Amino acid sequence: MIKKITIKDIAKAANVSITTVSFVLNDKGKEKGISKEVIKKVFKVSEEMKFKPNMMASSLRTGKTRSIGLIVEDISNQFFSDLAKVIEREAIDLNYRVFYCSTGGNNERAIELVNSLLQANVDGFIITPTEGMKATIDRLLELQCPVVLVDRYFEGQEVSHVVLDNFEGGETAARYFLKKGFKKIAFVTNSSQLIQMNFRKQGYSKALKDVGLYDDSRILELEYDITEEERIEKISDFLILNPKIDAILFGANYLLLAGLQSLRRLGHSIPADKAVISFDDHDSFRLHSPSITVLSQPIELIGKKTVRLLMKQMTDGSNYEIIKEKKKGSLTIRESV
């Protein structure tokens, strides 16, 4: 019978306390003042002992649970729910089940979810990482867990990912406004350092700088974790302070949903008073009157490619090739510009 490895075994082999092992494996080593050398040693020993927390007996025998852990920002957001449907469909076709989880953009929640899925002994991870999740992704790589990032990634980290070409998307949307004659173009985004949002802003900025129309006072950055009502109020205040704005690019669909309510409160009509474009589609955007122009992501392609890359990692083991892919979005023209 295969002996179940515990953190007590790890502690003994690494010659440290059980508490130290617990802190390190829960990504709290640095926070608790544990030295880099000890953290590295604990990870090395746990990897050598093939440790995974609370592994299920069935997976100990087979090493496989035919399951995938899917961690996204918010499964209720239509972009992520549509992406999850594609991933689940592809996984089911390959006889895998998918565990869905949402981080809500919370780093601690994200770490807890990774630990829970490790306990469930999932065979691989597909992750939309939070801003502070780099160390946790590093940990999965240390444990040689198959992992593919989707929608965003960390610069300099060697891990496979599939994302939208966000810079090109921001530039395309802004240039469409310019082509239609708009000159005072605003950008509403969030204040995080997430790479996809930064690239969207950079693409927007380049398009306007190229024609001498860039003005950083027309960029509104909102905290991610504020309420919907707070978003509406802040967008309303921004538009009151900048009455000459004639077009607005929203960096995500949930931002436009708040923006539409702000515009309504202020009595602005679309597109006569303000033209709008949003990143990522939403069912309500097609139904809205006027319907909303969007920079759509190729969700089908992204979902399929993500599953394909994960399965290849599972098959190739430690010999897998790191693949980093950008997919081009498309401007879906409707009535809001």
Rank of each mutant, 00 (worst) to 15 (best):
L222W: 04
L149E: 07
E221H: 09
R139P: 00
L164T: 02
V86M: 05
C145T: 11
V276K: 01
F199Q: 11
I277W: 08
S236W: 02
N106R: 14
T65D: 03
I292K: 01
K28I: 04
E335V: 03
I322D: 07
F199T: 02
D215T: 08
R231W: 02
K206I: 03
I18H: 09
R286N: 11
R61F: 10
S59G: 06
S191E: 09
S160E: 07
S330I: 14
E155T: 10
Y224G: 04
K50E: 13
N166M: 10
F43P: 00
L213A: 08
P146V: 08
K180L: 10
G169T: 06
Q144G: 08
I68A: 02
Y204E: 10
G69L: 00
R265L: 13
E223V: 05
L118P: 01
L220R: 00
L143K: 07
I71G: 04
P290M: 11
M311H: 10
R265D: 13
M56I: 07
L301D: 14
H268K: 15
K134N: 07
K8W: 05
I245A: 04
L287S: 12
K4S: 13
D316W: 06
T19P: 06
D246K: 12
G169I: 02
V276D: 00
T128W: 02
Q144R: 14
I2K: 13
N26A: 12
I137N: 01
T189Y: 09
H282G: 05
M49F: 11
S116L: 14
E229N: 13
D74E: 14
N253Y: 04
I245E: 01
K134Y: 06
L310I: 04
E158C: 05
V147K: 02
D27H: 08
A247D: 03
I7W: 02
V148K: 01
V148N: 02
I127T: 04
E233I: 10
V150T: 14
L208H: 03
F177M: 12
T19M: 13
S58A: 14
S17A: 12
G156K: 15
I299C: 02
A120H: 11
G169W: 01
K328I: 14
H282L: 05
S284W: 08
G170D: 04
E230W: 06
E228F: 10
N95Q: 12
M49A: 09
D27F: 05
E300H: 11
Q193V: 07
